[in-house]
Computed example of a mutant assay.
Amino acid sequence: MHSENVIVVGAGRPTSGPVSLTQGRYGARGNLELLACDSRDGLWVFWFNADEAEDPLQSPDVPAGCWSAGLAFASGRHFVDAQIVQSTLGPDHLEVVALTDAGTLESWYWSPGPGFQRRVRDVAASVRRFRLTHDGGVLHVSLELTGGSSASLVSGTDGYPDRMWRASSQPPVFDDGSAERALQGQGITDVASGTARAAQSTRNGGTTELAWRDRSGRVRHLAVPDSGI
């Protein structure tokens, strides 16, 4: 059991809904990026300083082994889900796809200097749920629409940082519950249904990064060596 190593992320921040996690390319060892919806307006991103004591000091604001206090962005709308991935484009831009309570699936990206920017073209409308994956700079989105049908979209690298979306022949794939099962395997059962997600990182020779919301609403993070899953 690894419950004693669980970290609370963004304590005091008003977040809600599922969370999303990826290993970024920043810092000496690849910091973690965690995305959550604000409970009323916009989005929050938190980052984990994955550097160790012997690494060059990269961020005096967040000590090694700690999560940041969080950065708010995308104000003006209420989001119900948002997912983040690390792109190879930019270089090293972060990609965000976020679903509003009106069913609009927005496309955002982060780059040094400007920070998070919303693209002019949204991904889709009338969306009930989605799943974002990536392969290098190519993004894939599985959609379930409000009418009950499902679809897959893909966005390639042409014209980047703008993105065009087209129908994909890949079958839609949604959350398979593997993150929640991994948490159960670590003896952790205080998990709000549908909020757990996992990401792989290269930290410590290979780590499964688990993020979820407990039943009281707090965002949690647990790093499990791949040998312990």
Rank of each mutant, 00 (worst) to 15 (best):
Ser3Lys: 09
Ser3Arg: 09
Val6Arg: 05
Val9Ile: 11
Thr15Gln: 04
Val19Trp: 05
Leu21Lys: 10
Gly24Pro: 11
Tyr26Asp: 13
Tyr26Lys: 10
Glu33Leu: 13
Trp47Leu: 04
Asn49Gly: 11
Ala50Ile: 04
Ala53Ser: 08
Leu57Tyr: 07
Leu57Ser: 12
Gln58Trp: 15
Pro60Ser: 15
Pro60Gly: 15
Ala69Asp: 15
Ala72Asn: 12
Phe73Thr: 11
Phe79His: 14
Ala82His: 15
Ala82Val: 15
Asp92Leu: 04
Leu94Met: 02
Leu99His: 05
Asp101Gln: 06
Gly103Leu: 01
Leu105Pro: 00
Ser107His: 13
Trp108Lys: 02
Trp108His: 06
Trp110Leu: 01
Ser111Glu: 03
Pro114Glu: 13
Gly115Tyr: 05
Phe116Ala: 05
Gln117Met: 14
Arg119Tyr: 09
Val123Gln: 09
Val127Leu: 07
Val127His: 05
Arg131Tyr: 09
Gly136Ala: 00
Val138Asp: 02
Leu145His: 12
Ser149Asp: 11
Gly156Ala: 00
Gly159Glu: 04
Gly159Tyr: 03
Tyr160Trp: 02
Arg166Ile: 06
Ala167Pro: 02
Ala167Phe: 06
Pro171Ala: 15
Pro172Asn: 00
Phe174Leu: 06
Asp176Trp: 02
Asp176Tyr: 01
Gly177Ala: 03
Ser178Cys: 11
Ala179Thr: 08
Arg181Ser: 14
Arg181Ile: 14
Gly185Arg: 04
Gly185Ser: 14
Thr189Pro: 04
Ala199Val: 02
Glu209Arg: 13
Glu209Met: 12
Leu210Ile: 03
Ala211Glu: 01
Ala211Cys: 10
His221Phe: 06
Ile229Arg: 15
